[in-house]
Lab assay of single mutants.
Amino acid sequence: MASQGTKRSYEQMETDGERQNATEIRASVGKMIDGIGRFYIQMCTELKLSDYEGRLIQNSLTIERMVLSAFDERRNKYLEEHPSAGKDPKKTGGPIYKRVDRKWMRELVLYDKEEIRRIWRQANNGDDATAGLTHMMIWHSNLNDTTYQRTRALVRTGMDPRMCSLMQGSTLPRRSGAAGAAVKGVGTMVMELIRMIKRGINDRNFWRGENGRKTRSAYERMCNILKGKFQTAAQRAMMDQVRESRNPGNAEIEDLIFLARSALILRGSVAHKSCLPACVYGPAVASGYDFEKEGYSLVGIDPFKLLQNSQVYSLIRPNENPAHKSQLVWMACNSAAFEDLRVLSFIRGTKVSPRGKLSTRGVQIASNENMDAMESSTLELRSRYWAIRTRSGGNTNQQRASAGQISVQPAFSVQRNLPFDKPTIMAAFTGNTEGRTSDMRAEIIRMMEGAKPEEMSFQGRGVFELSDERAANPIVPSFDMSNEGSYFFGDNAEEYDN
Rank of each mutant, 00 (worst) to 15 (best):
Asn211Gln: 15
Arg75Ser: 05
Ala22Arg: 01
Thr15Phe: 10
Tyr52His: 06
Gly349Leu: 01
Ala131Asp: 05
Trp104Ser: 03
Ile116Pro: 03
Met43Val: 02
Pro83Met: 06
Leu381Gly: 03
Leu79Ala: 12
Ser383Pro: 07
Arg389Trp: 14
Ala336Phe: 09
Arg195Cys: 08
Thr6Phe: 13
Ser438Cys: 14
Gly169Glu: 07
Ser141Lys: 12
Arg175Asn: 09
Ala70Lys: 09
Leu47Lys: 13
Leu358His: 14
Gly460Pro: 09
Ile225Ala: 09
Gly30Glu: 12
Met481Val: 13
Lys48Leu: 00
Gly349Phe: 10
Ser217Cys: 13
Ser482Val: 13
Asn368Thr: 15
Asn247His: 05
Asn473Ile: 03
Gly5Trp: 09
Glu494Ser: 05
Met43Trp: 09
Arg391Trp: 03
Gln241Phe: 08
Met448Asp: 09
Arg382Tyr: 09
Lys98Gln: 04
Thr396Lys: 00
Trp139Ala: 10
Gly490Ser: 08
Gly394Thr: 06
Tyr296Thr: 12
Arg74Met: 00
Arg162Leu: 12
His82Glu: 08
Arg391Asp: 11
Lys305Asp: 13
Ala251Asn: 10
Asn250Met: 08
Met222Leu: 13
Ser392Tyr: 07
Arg55Tyr: 13
Asp72Arg: 04
Leu166Pro: 13
Arg174Pro: 09
Arg416Asn: 03
Ser269Arg: 10
Thr215Cys: 03
Ala403Met: 15
Lys198Ile: 08
Ala182Cys: 08
Glu465Tyr: 08
Gln311Pro: 15
Asn483Pro: 12
Leu259Ile: 01
Ala387Cys: 11
Ala323Cys: 01
Asp51Gly: 00
Leu266Pro: 05
Ser326Gly: 15
Leu266Arg: 04
Val183Glu: 14
Gly394Lys: 03
Glu495Gln: 07
Ile116Lys: 13
Ser69Glu: 05
Glu320Asp: 05
Ser377Val: 15
Glu495Met: 01
Leu298Thr: 08
Leu108Phe: 15
Met32Ala: 04
Met426Ser: 14
Met136Glu: 07
Lys98Asp: 15
Lys184Arg: 04
Gly295Ala: 01
Ile406Asn: 07
Lys452Thr: 00
Phe346Glu: 03
Leu381Arg: 15
Arg470Leu: 13
Tyr281Glu: 07
Val312Arg: 14
Arg389Asp: 12
Lys293Ile: 04
Lys325Trp: 11
Ser376Gly: 08
Thr171Val: 03
Met481Phe: 14
Arg150Asn: 14
Leu379Cys: 15
Thr147His: 10
Val343Gln: 08
Leu266Cys: 07
Arg74Thr: 02
Met163Leu: 01
Lys91Arg: 00
Asn432Val: 02
Gly268Tyr: 12
Met189Lys: 13
Glu449Ile: 13
Phe346Gly: 00
Glu192Ala: 02
Asp372Ala: 06
Ile36Phe: 14
Asp491Tyr: 05
Ala493Gln: 13
Asn417Trp: 14
Pro248Gly: 04
Ile57Arg: 00
Gly132Ala: 14
Val408Arg: 09
Thr433Ile: 13
Ser269Ile: 07
Asn397Ala: 00
Asp290Ser: 13
Asn432Trp: 00
Pro89Met: 00
Pro161Lys: 05
Ser3Leu: 01
Gln398Asn: 01
Ser457Trp: 09
Val109Met: 15
Gly462Arg: 12
Glu210Pro: 05
Met136Val: 04
Gly94Ile: 10
Arg361Asn: 10
Ser9Pro: 07
Trp330Gly: 02
Asp127Pro: 05
Glu210Asn: 04
Leu306Thr: 05
Gly86Thr: 02
Val329Cys: 06
Met159Gln: 12
Glu454Asn: 04
Leu259Gly: 14
Gly86Leu: 13
Arg317His: 09
Gly187Tyr: 10
Glu339Ala: 08
Leu108Val: 05
Gly450Phe: 15
Glu252Phe: 11
Thr130Phe: 03
Asn247Ile: 08
Ala263Cys: 03
Leu379Gln: 14
Glu210His: 12
Thr15Tyr: 05
Asp439Val: 00
Ala286Cys: 09
Arg102Phe: 01
Asp101Asn: 03
Gln4Gly: 05
Met105Trp: 00
Arg195Lys: 14
Lys91His: 08
Ala234Ile: 01
Leu154Pro: 14
Ser413His: 14
Glu449Gln: 14
Arg236Ile: 07
His135Val: 09
Asn368Leu: 14
Glu18His: 00
Leu379Asp: 11
Leu298Gln: 10
Arg213Ser: 03
Phe458Trp: 03
Ala218Gly: 05
Tyr496Phe: 08
Pro83Ala: 02
Asp112Glu: 04
Ile119Arg: 06
Thr424Tyr: 02
Ala27Val: 12
Gly93Phe: 11
Ile96Ala: 03
Val329Ala: 06
Met167Glu: 07
His140Glu: 11
Tyr111Met: 15
Glu454Tyr: 14
Leu61Val: 15
Pro453Ala: 06
Cys44Ile: 15
Ser359Gln: 15
Ala218Cys: 07
Arg156Tyr: 06
Met448Glu: 02
Leu315Pro: 13
Ile57Ser: 05
Ser165Asn: 08
Arg199Ile: 13
Ala123Gln: 09
Ala181His: 05
Thr23Val: 00
Ala123Glu: 12
Ser407Phe: 10
Gly158Val: 04
Thr130Ile: 08
Ile96Met: 14
Lys227Gly: 11
Ala387Ile: 11
Ala178Asp: 07
Lys422Asn: 04
Asn370His: 15
Asn247Glu: 09
Gly485Trp: 00
Gln459Ala: 00
Ser392Leu: 13
Met447Lys: 08
Ala332Arg: 02
His140Ser: 05
Arg400Tyr: 12
Val352Arg: 10
Asp340Cys: 08
Glu14Ile: 07
Ser353Asp: 09
Lys227Ile: 04
Glu455Pro: 05
Phe71Asp: 13
